[in-house]
Design a protein around this nucleic acid. Structure first.
Lengths: 404, 404
DNA sequence: AGCAATTTTTTTGAAGATCAAATTAAATAA
DNA sequence: TTATTTAATTTGATCTTCAAAAAAATTGCT
């Protein structure tokens, strides 16, 4: 199946078609009209109509045919692709130490990367707006572009986010609750902003550029300070009623268990999050000074029993939580995303075997579990992907009216 | 919002409209054309067109106006409703002791109820087909109708069901795995059969007739022998890739915990299922004979500490599992469905308070948790609801071609 | 070269479907 | 009776999609 989305929500009929064709092109990278028609069950006639609209609007472009390799008879197909120059997009990830910015073109090609250090990890909403502005400026300067060229920006944030309303219920990096961050940013800067939970951003990146490109339903698990989850159902990110679902990290894995930073007990995050591992390492090693996480991993690798025991329990808890998610969703695909360090333990074969053993057994293949290593820019790229989708939707909707 | 479904999957444009109008009428019970137009954002002109199609096909009917109470000026609205006589539908629930059958008309009105006892709880697929046939015969005889009048039958079964393919991965009542039960039934009997997990059937009943009638997204929890869950997302039952998602009962609530009948450890069901409670009661009471569950409840109500302790732990585990589901889905509504006996303990205020305390906290109203008591026929009615939906879809699709 | 064969893309014209506006229908109020 | 109000239907224009036909751009074969 094609990776074409089918978001039929309050759209005009033609808008649906345009979106579908556009998404198909993006999912394919480069694709001829005839194949778009085959993949989408839209007739070639309509594909011609829609693609010529998109061409006229400058959103896509034809590729000059070059490779005469698989030379068959017949009129040669001419491939279409997204026109990178159509839009410049920004993705920002706000973490404890810095704001990471990435500028990408409409094709997803990186234009510039930039890091803006944080003066302090917790700040006021106004400070955050200023920080975002500074970060965008820095990135634009680096790329030799103007800030006004940016068509849209995605912002990834830890915490509880209502993405539909670009609203922050709570974030560890803000000193206030219930902040209309999206509105504040859109007022301060002249482009649309799209705020989301950082795990959802990774899911979006997987959907647009990554392992989820040809899958309509999948789940992404991310491990950073906390544990995050992004759920894609029917090509859309599932967000729940208040926009703050998918709180995998605060799923309970132990009755009255370890204390979590959210104030509750037994959360998965309180067993596998960075801070939880550090807490354990420090407690068990007596009055030792604050240990670095990489040292814990190193000790475990060297065979240190205590370090191994800490990570082993984390792995068992993680397996239990993941099995629960699989039992609930029965997904086609699970993508475990993260940085190298966690791999050997949380994403180890032993843990995955444990997951498989804890899933309801039927005579049908188990969900595929893929591990996808991302570099540092994973989060920011996800934010950019989100902006890209938002801007695509806006632009395609815009075509309807501006056509006169 | 109206309870109108929006299942835009591979449907023709008109089919979507018809389905939408039809669903709106069913959700409303009785409703005038003008209100259909207002609720669905379909124009009055189109509503007229579609309803006259449905009228001509005999699927709906006009109600003779009678109540001149809220007498306003203007042409009086004429209400439409589903035409009960349009179809006769059957719902069957296969449990350990008996097959319960309910016959309903197209409006959902009960026509007959019938119980067919089981010779033995575990049987071969062929035996089950015979049993279903006998049960339908019995019900039809009772109602004075012929078996050939039945337009469709829903069958609810415990176990792991792939509803999309009417396929049984596994059921405790079958002595074989991987049974194409739907195909076997449709071949033996001359009407379409719709097989599903029993929890999903309850969800369907809630959606068509119950608390979920005006809600596009909700979750149903059922407690019987095991623990079941039905997930409704965007007006559709979510089933997962292999068709066997929503296995709430086999969600793990304790690492290496109590042994479940599925062979794994720590499943929620192994703490709150009937058989789990009985097991505990029997173990704790020493060599006492097999205790009846109602006696356990009675003892707890009388203040027996041991009985209370058993039920208390079950309640805590249940709260934990339910909180996990809420943290993952952030649903608008959770419906706890079941029989009276379980209420005082699993659905008690203490348990619900515990759930609320274990859910991620934001400054937005918590998901609503409603308790819905059903009679014995809950399951069979759900099966009938499922058949009803299947037959509606088939009939409405049929209109397209038969119209010449 | 020239023509047949093949494949992709575009054009054309017919068939639906929706909807705004106009019209008709059926009541009450004055 | 006549005006007013509200509901339902009809009408005609607009918009989409698509099948079929035509055009375009190749290769293969003689």
């Amino acid at each position: 199946m094609a990776g074409a989305a089918r978001a039929t929500h309050g759209m005009e009929q033609r808008e649906v078609g345009r979106q579908q064709v556009f998404d198909t092109i993006r999912a394919a990278g480069r694709i001829a009209r005839i194949d778009i028609a085959r993949q989408t069950s839209v007739s070639p006639a309509t594909v011609t109509a829609i693609t010529s609209e998109l061409l006229a609007a400058g959103l896509i472009e034809e590729i000059v045919p070059e490779d005469r390799e698989g030379a068959k008879r017949g009129r040669p197909r001419v491939a279409l692709k997204i026109r990178g120059a159509a839009h410049l997009l920004a993705g920002l990830k706000i973490a404890d130490r810095a704001v990471t910015v990435i500028l990408v073109d409409f094709e997803g090609q990186t234009v510039a990367e930039y890091d803006q250090p944080l003066p302090h990890p917790v700040m006021s909403p106004a400070e955050m707006v200023g920080l975002v502005e500074a970060a965008l400026d820095g990135a634009c300067k680096l790329a030799g572009r103007s800030r006004t060229e940016i068509s849209g920006a995605g912002v990834g944030l830890s915490g509880l986010i209502d993405a539909r309303n670009n609203f922050v219920h709570w974030s560890p990096n803000l000193d206030a609750r219930n902040v209309h961050l999206g509105r504040m940013l859109s007022e301060a800067l002249p482009c649309p902003f799209f705020i989301d939970n950082d795990a959802n951003l990774v899911a979006k990146a997987e959907q647009l550029f990554g392992e989820g490109r040809n899958t309509s339903d999948f789940i992404v698990i991310t491990i950073e300070m906390g544990v995050g989850m992004g759920i894609v159902i029917d090509n859309r990110i599932y967000r729940g009623e208040r926009g703050c679902g998918a709180e995998f990290g605060h799923t309970k894995v132990q009755l009255d268990g370890a204390l979590c930073r959210c104030g509750q007990r037994g959360c998965l995050e309180a067993y596998v999050g960075d801070y939880a591992l550090l807490r354990e390492a420090n407690i068990r090693s007596g009055a030792a000074p604050e240990e670095d996480l990489s040292r814990l991993y190193a000790r475990a690798r060297r065979g240190d029993a205590m370090a191994q025991s800490i990570l082993d329990r984390a792995g068992r808890m993680f397996a239990m939580g993941l099995a629960n998610v699989i039992n609930i969703f029965d997904p086609k695909l699970v993508i475990l995303s993260g940085e190298q360090m966690a791999y050997d333990f949380l994403y180890s074969e032993a843990v995955l075997a444990r997951v498989r053993a804890s899933v309801v057994q039927v005579d049908a293949p188990l969900p595929e579990i893929r591990i996808h290593e991302w570099g540092d820019l994973m989060w920011a790229k996800g934010a950019a992907a989100y902006a890209m989708e938002g801007v695509s939707a806006l632009t395609i909707k815009g075509l309807a009216t501006n056509e006169a």
